[in-house]
């Protein structure tokens, strides 16, 4: 192993180590505080973990089923939203009229928190999975479109000219040059969209989640309103964090290091 690699690895492991120690210290403080105070709304970590493990196997409140329900919804919504964003941003390049209307729509809707749309969705679509799906799509579509359109504008003109020079049609150019050249933006748009959608989805479920279509937000709400089971509330929050971390490191980081990082487009 050469020296440069060694220093790189070392700094990476130190950073991991620092993060690990930080988390351990937080956990210890939490545990000490919770056991010394014994407050109902601030359960000790072992109680939370025990509840969480319990609820994996419980039949009354199988937390993983609730989580799976939310996760499937968000994956569907992300897929539809991301695809729509790519297609519409692409069409905006092809056609100026579509482009100007689309930019207007983005500036209108990107500012609108999905949860603010809930009352309207509830009345028009009804409080069901479709509403939540629409909310997720809304949370992804606009930030992602904004990012993609910004990305398109930042593409060095040489790439586009080269593409045209080699005889790419406008659609070929979109798929072959525009999208890969702005892939860093596509990804960051997707990241923003995912974060907004995940938060929006859980908020929506907590606000009107139907018992029938039970997502993790409904689980938290049930724990809070019916079972008054605060350890389970914390457990669900931990699970949400864990899923978020897995998506961040298991999905976004992997894609990033295989694409834009490998291509030298971001550090």
């Amino acid at each position: 192993m050469n020296k440069e690699n060694y220093t790189k690895l070392k700094s990476r492991y130190t950073s991991l180590g620092v993060q690990f120690i930080f988390v351990v210290i937080c956990c210890i403080s939490w545990q000490l505080y919770a056991t010394s105070r014994n407050i109902m709304g601030f359960p000790a970590l072992d109680v939370i973990v025990a509840h969480l493990i319990d609820s994996f196997t419980s039949t009354r409140q199988p937390i993983l089923l609730y989580m799976a329900h939310s996760f499937i919804l968000i994956v569907e919504g992300l897929a539809i939203g991301a695809l729509t964003a790519v297609v519409l941003s692409g069409l905006s390049v092809v056609n100026n009229i579509i482009g100007s209307i689309y930019r207007l729509l983005i500036s209108i809707f990107d500012l609108l928190p999905g949860v603010a749309l809930l009352p309207i969705l509830m009345i028009t679509v009804g409080a069901n999975d479709l509403s939540i799906l629409i909310l997720v799509i809304h949370s992804v579509l606009w930030p992602m479109s904004r990012n993609i359109m910004d990305g398109f504008r930042m593409i060095p003109p040489t790439y586009i000219e080269a593409g045209k020079n080699y005889g790419l049609s406008i659609y070929g150019l979109l798929a072959g040059v525009y999208i890969p050249a702005s892939f860093a933006n596509v990804l960051s748009g997707l990241k923003i969209g995912w974060a907004r959608a995940w938060r929006g989805l859980i908020s929506a479920e907590m606000i009107f989640g139907a018992a029938q279509s039970a997502g993790i937000g409904v689980y938290i709400n049930n724990a809070r309103t019916i079972w008054l089971d605060y350890p389970s509330v914390y457990g669900a929050i931990f699970l949400i964090i864990i899923v978020g971390v897995i998506v961040e490191y298991g999905f976004f980081h992997v894609i990033e290091s295989r694409t834009v990082k490998r291509w030298g487009m971001i550090r």
């Binding site: 009352p119 509830m122 409080a127 606000i207 009107f208 989640g209 139907a210 018992a211 029938q212």
Partner: peptide, 12 residues
């Protein structure tokens, strides 16, 4: 009827 429940404020 638990699975039929839909949380909404009274006005909603």
């Amino acid at each position: 009827l638990d699975n039929n429940i839909q949380r909404m404020s009274h006005a909603e």
